[in-house]
Amino acid sequence: MQHISIDLSNLQPPTRDQPVAEVAESLPTATASKRHPSSPGGENASIYFVGTATTILEWQGIRIMTDPNFLHAGDHVHLGPGVSSTRKTNPAVDLHDLPRIDLVLLSHYHADHFDQHVEASLRRSLPIITTSHARSTLTSKGPESFTNIYDLEPFQQMMINIGSKSAGQSAPALRVTGMPGKHVPVAKPIEKLNELVGAIPPTNGWMLELGYAQNAGTFNVGYRIYISGDTLLVGDLKEIPRRYAEQNQKIDLMLVHLGGTTVPSPSLAPFTLMVTMDATQGVELMRLVKPDVTIPIHYDDYDVFASSLENFQAQVERAGLGGVVYLDRGEEYRFAVRE
């Protein structure tokens, strides 16, 4: 297990003369605040939905951002040889109106998850946990390289200390575990072609656990969040519920990437390839993982998305599944981290 430390007392707020985005004091007030659909109460943490796969989690004075993408409607991203996409929506907050971010979870190095303006604007020392492919890319840009990048393979773990503790006391901490993901269909010809042209990079999901570290070296989990990342419903994902069910570890929340991303464009069907879960696969993942609450993200922001949120809603209802919270951009989900 790897260890990094974030000492909030030593963090200096970015100044406006630095080429960084994080200059605001706080996030905008959420347009709506939602809670557990059946047992709300005791909320002490929140997830703010910016748009596409970008969320910002706040707990114990820190902010964790996932897959930062802050392009606007009409902006384009390059997704591989001959493949581009146009954004259809605006983010809930502009990149240069962000407050301080303490950690980024980057599922993979793709422009719709880490756009060119994000790459140019975030401070170079910002801790980023990602894939080995993304780490290699982000640390190989000479003077513009990011300097605090960590990579995790599936089921590798990293502890992040976010507060100090005195004798006999616990301190808030995070544990991040890499989760498997496949951004291309599991078919040898397709995988070999992708290796050759490098169109779709390797991707991770994450298990983010919020809890308290003890002096004895133990870690008591107070809340567990599974973030699927850009993956299809592949056999590797079956290992997730097996590992956590065996240890009776409940998954409190799942952030599921949907959209049925179809390249090079949904308009070119049937000569297309689906590279993220559609509504049907999203419902099957709910059945597989059995999270207490599910929040769909990454569902309508780009024109390569072919599977609508409405389709997912309808399939959830037909399947008789509950515990789904729907967030629009600018809304937040508040939850309780157990002590």
Rank of each mutant, 00 (worst) to 15 (best):
T55M: 06
S308Q: 11
L106M: 13
V293K: 06
K238N: 12
F305Q: 14
I240L: 03
P180L: 10
L98T: 11
G163Y: 03
S9A: 14
Y226K: 06
L321A: 11
V283K: 05
S46I: 02
L27A: 12
A213V: 03
T262I: 04
R35K: 13
Q214F: 01
G61Y: 05
G259R: 11
I225R: 04
S38C: 03
A120G: 05
P291I: 02
V176H: 04
K165Q: 13
L237D: 07
A120Q: 14
G181T: 08
K290M: 03
V324I: 10
Q214I: 01
S265H: 15
V283E: 09
H298K: 10
S5L: 02
A111H: 12
H78V: 11
L138T: 08
V263S: 04
P291V: 02
G322Q: 14
S136K: 11
D292M: 09
L233F: 13
I62L: 13
T86A: 07
P172G: 06
S107T: 15
M207A: 07
V50N: 08
F49C: 04
L27F: 03
A187K: 09
G217M: 02
I162L: 02
N10C: 04
F114K: 09
V20K: 04
K188Y: 05
L193I: 09
T29I: 12
Q18P: 00
E195T: 11
D112E: 14
A314Q: 15
H113I: 04
A213R: 13
D300I: 01
I251A: 08
Q157G: 08
L193P: 00
P68M: 09
E144D: 14
H113E: 15
T218Y: 01
T86I: 04
D67K: 05
Q116F: 04
G80D: 08
V118N: 07
V293Y: 02
D102T: 08
E339N: 14
V50K: 06
T15E: 14
K188P: 00
D230L: 03
N90M: 02
P28V: 07
I162V: 12
I297N: 08
T272G: 06
L126M: 09
L71C: 06
E317D: 13
V283R: 07
I101Y: 04
Y226F: 12
Q2M: 11
L122P: 00
S5D: 12
L103Q: 11
V256Y: 04
H72S: 13
L11A: 10
A171T: 05
S9M: 05
R87E: 03
P68Q: 12
L138I: 03
T272Q: 10
M254T: 12
M254P: 01
N90C: 01
L57D: 05
G168S: 05
L152N: 10
L103W: 03
Y299A: 14
E284L: 05
H117G: 01
S125W: 01
A306F: 01
A216I: 01
R329T: 13
E339L: 08
T139Q: 08
L126I: 15
I128A: 11
E317M: 08
V275P: 00
T89D: 06
D236Q: 10
K34Q: 14
L321P: 00
S33Q: 15
T137K: 10
Y326N: 09
L106W: 07
E191T: 12
S33Y: 02
D301P: 00
S26G: 04
H113S: 14
S121W: 02
T86C: 06
G41E: 11
H76C: 03
